[in-house]
């Protein structure tokens, strides 16, 4: 598995310029831009860096490369293990950089009190990205990078549009209202269930991906 992790790391290094641009943009807009951008620098960085995990599938598939990877000693399940490990580590790193940047930003431009107010929202971004990857990865492995990504984005878009339409139509979703009330009472209270959901989704997703790749022909 180490060889596959190194392969992903090498591919990541090839995209160093992309990460530099993402980070530079985050720094510039955070310290010079509006307050509204400063408030979502963590989510921006976590999301942009987690997107690279989707690109890794494309890099592996380029020129039918998956067939060759599947002939290597590490085998099929190790490929999935390496992909999930690398994705979790990379997304966590993106989130950590975003969190530190946002912390520094609030200490320099705003106040510690304001940062403490938004602190509970920080881990949410990481957990939401992990949930999304957990939902999308089996589709990417089954249908390939291009088709799988389209399926994952479509499902997400339908879900978001659905919520938006319901909210716009004036319907109240009791579950969401209950979550809102909980979050207002104690912002930290949502973190443990969200963490449990992300761990559960990632675990089921991993098991599903191992099953999919074991049956896939290249």
């Amino acid at each position: 598995m180490t060889g596959l992790l190194i392969k992903d790391w090498m591919l990541l290094k090839r995209q160093g310029r992309y990460f530099m641009i993402v980070l530079a943009l985050a720094c510039i807009l955070s310290f010079m831009g509006s307050e509204s951008f400063s408030s979502f620098v963590t989510s921006y960085l976590t999301f942009m860096i987690s997107m690279f995990n989707f690109s890794l599938f494309s890099y592996d598939e380029f020129d039918n490369g998956m067939a060759f990877l599947m002939t290597l000693p590490s085998g099929r399940s190790d490929y999935v293990k390496a992909r999930y490990t690398f994705s979790i580590l990379l997304t966590s790193c993106g989130w950590l950089v975003g969190t530190l940047l946002r912390m520094g930003l609030y200490l320099v431009r705003f106040s510690v009190a304001e940062y403490i107010e938004i602190l509970p929202s920080e881990p949410m971004y990481l957990l939401i990205c992990l949930i999304y990857m957990g939902l999308a990865f089996p589709a990417l492995i089954k249908y390939g990078a291009e088709k799988g990504r389209n399926i994952a984005f479509t499902v997400l878009a339908i879900f978001a549009i659905g919520i938006f339409m319901i909210a716009k139509a004036g319907f109240e979703i009791p579950f969401l209202k209950w979550i809102d009330r909980l979050a207002e009472t104690n912002p930290f209270i949502l973190l443990p269930p969200l963490a449990a959901v992300s761990v559960l989704i990632m675990t089921v997703s991993y098991a599903l991906s191992v099953r999919i790749i074991a049956k896939k022909e290249f």
Partner: peptide, 14 residues
């Protein structure tokens, strides 16, 4: 095993 596939190799970005 040492393998050469006609249409496949390591990622061309490496």
């Amino acid at each position: 095993l040492g393998i050469v596939l006609s249409d496949s190799c390591f990622s061309r970005y490496l």
